[in-house]
Amino acid sequence: MTEDAYVRRFGFRRYEGIRSNRISRIISVSWFNLGEAIRRSGFTKMLLVFMIIGLLVQDLLAILITSLVPSSMWGDITVNEMFRATYADSIIGMISLTNRVSTMDSDMAFLTQFLTIGSSFMFILLLAVVSGGLISDDRLFQATEAYYSRISRFEYVLGKLFTLIIFSMVFVSLPAVMQYFLLAQGLEVNMIANLDLLLWGLGTTLLSSVVLSIVTLAFSSLTKRRNLATLSFFMAAMIMSALPAAFGLVFATEPTTLIIDFVGCIGLLAAMFLGRSSVTVNGQTVRFYNGLGLEGYMVVATVALLVFLGVLALVLTLFRRDS
């Protein structure tokens, strides 16, 4: 058989099916990019393994701490209140990086400080690694032209954003749900009665996923180098998160500087959604509504500004008229 005859065997078939809708195409972009972002890097896979182990350890720690600490140390709080506080701290710990945010009083916060170690750091690092090349690689290899000739720019950005949201949800929202059931089971509290806490946990992790995805995607859209995007986002998050603690040591005032910790502010906002008027940050009490220091509206403004800057960067880089 000649090469020509071989080629001709695969002639054209007319496509007579119905084409999928726009949402399916956005989901195609998300799944494809998610798979590729994880598949192509051994480092990402290794981080994922560490992240999963870290989450399991965190779940076990939460149960062990609350089970093993003698009830005399709890003071006058009930098991149910302990469950709610531990769960809330654990969820906030997943998304608040270096500053230890606790919904408990300062003298009790030490109980849950262990929960915040590791997982949020790993989450931010993974998010930075996965998101780094999402847009920057497309710009470098001019794949945006192939996308734009088939889907709109808005669908392209949504697809990329969903890639990160799906990823984030798998690594914070899913563990949040698992932890709820494990902790409730371990402490033998009524799951149905505390369902609002589960919804809060889901809402908080979803908010964190969406906000941080927009920001990381913005970093990726600003450059054609994936490593630069990854490193700059991770360094920005880490430095901004570490600075308030450094300022606090020097000035020893109420940590107003926490507003520059843009990742931690999502945790503070989550605590506000839970109805807390004060939280313990790094062992120091922060009141949201006392008219002094870090106020609630400042936390809201920081998160809103973060979203605004992320969207602005995406618009300027991807929606420019002639780009």
Binding site: E36, R40, D137, D138, F141, Q142, A143, T144, E145, A146, S149
Partner: peptide, 10 residues
């Protein structure tokens, strides 16, 4: 397109 838009790792 004129240039080669691609996703090199696939």
């Amino acid at each position: 397109p004129e240039f080669a838009p691609s996703i090199p790792s696939v």
